[in-house]
Simulated scan of single mutants.
Amino acid sequence: MQFTPLKIEGAWSISPVRIEDERGWFARLFCEQEFAEHGLETRFVQHSASYSRESGTLRGMHYQKEPHPETKLVSCVQGRIWDVIIDLRPDSPSYLDWLSLELSAEEGMQFYIPQGCAHGFQTLTDDVIVHYLISNFHAPDAAGGIRFDDPAVGIDWPSPPTVISPKDLSWPILSRERQVFETAGYLEF
């Protein structure tokens, strides 16, 4: 595997090194030893998947508050997505910065997303399947989100969303969410 650190601290792209022959190819997608050598999470307690029918579908921007923050390892196993994170860690030099990677089934690159980041994606093709390895059990009471079009962040999405859930449309803009964070003590991730 090829590990590449990204501009948001703790975020990585992880690309498979494929061994090819007449049958096709083989690649390792996870190795506890290699992840540990890079200081990355090695314990993933949940493996989830999402399916999106239409190109332009937007899911996000989701995160888990303390005491249930999540590290995610995201891959697109069918189709293509534009995957995005926002750094919500106030003590981080990249606080409120966003970062995107294009993930596809063809290339097999994975996005390692550290705790304290909101995550979402937009599908670039129809019939997309995304897999998530998640380091913590889902805690509904700790679930949070930020609007995908929050002007304080300014994510430049590939296109206007064609499908988005009512829940994702109802997330507050960051200026209001920050007041909620500060009031509830959620600024520590």
Rank of each mutant, 00 (worst) to 15 (best):
M1N: 12
T4D: 05
T4E: 11
P5Y: 07
I8Y: 00
I8H: 00
G10D: 06
S13Q: 14
S15E: 15
R18P: 00
I19C: 08
E20N: 12
E22D: 15
W25F: 15
A27Q: 03
R28P: 01
R28W: 12
R28N: 13
F30H: 13
E32A: 12
Q33S: 12
Q33V: 12
E34H: 09
F35H: 05
A36S: 12
E37T: 08
G39A: 07
L40V: 09
L40S: 06
L40T: 07
E41W: 03
T42V: 15
R43L: 11
R43C: 10
Q46W: 03
H47M: 10
H47S: 14
H47T: 14
S50E: 04
S52G: 05
E54C: 06
G56K: 05
T57E: 07
L58D: 05
R59A: 06
G60V: 13
G60C: 10
M61V: 06
Y63I: 00
Q64K: 02
K65L: 13
K65T: 12
P67E: 11
H68Y: 14
H68K: 11
H68P: 08
P69H: 04
E70I: 01
E70A: 03
K72E: 13
K72G: 05
K72N: 09
V74N: 02
S75F: 05
V77L: 07
G79H: 07
I81D: 04
I81V: 14
W82Y: 15
W82E: 09
W82P: 02
D83M: 03
I85L: 05
I86W: 04
I86N: 05
D87Q: 02
L88G: 00
P90L: 02
P93Y: 00
P93S: 04
S94D: 02
S94H: 01
Y95M: 02
Y95S: 03
Y95G: 01
L96P: 01
L99G: 04
L99S: 07
L101Y: 08
L101F: 08
L101R: 08
L101K: 06
E102F: 01
S104H: 10
A105E: 13
E107P: 00
G108L: 09
M109F: 11
Q110I: 13
Q110A: 12
F111K: 06
F111D: 08
I113F: 06
P114L: 00
Q115H: 01
G116H: 00
H119T: 06
H119K: 05
L124H: 12
T125F: 00
D127W: 05
V128Q: 04
I129R: 10
I129M: 11
I129A: 07
V130T: 12
H131I: 15
H131G: 10
L133E: 14
N136G: 08
N136S: 13
F137I: 14
P140M: 04
P140A: 02
D141N: 08
D141F: 07
A143I: 10
G144Y: 01
G145N: 10
D150N: 05
P151F: 14
V153P: 04
G154Q: 09
I155D: 13
W157L: 04
P161I: 11
P161K: 06
T162Y: 02
V163P: 00
I164C: 07
P166F: 15
D168G: 07
D168P: 00
L169T: 09
L169N: 10
S170V: 08
S170K: 09
W171L: 07
P172Y: 13
I173V: 14
I173L: 14
I173N: 09
V180F: 11
V180I: 14
V180H: 06
E182K: 03
Y186H: 09
L187D: 14
F189Q: 01
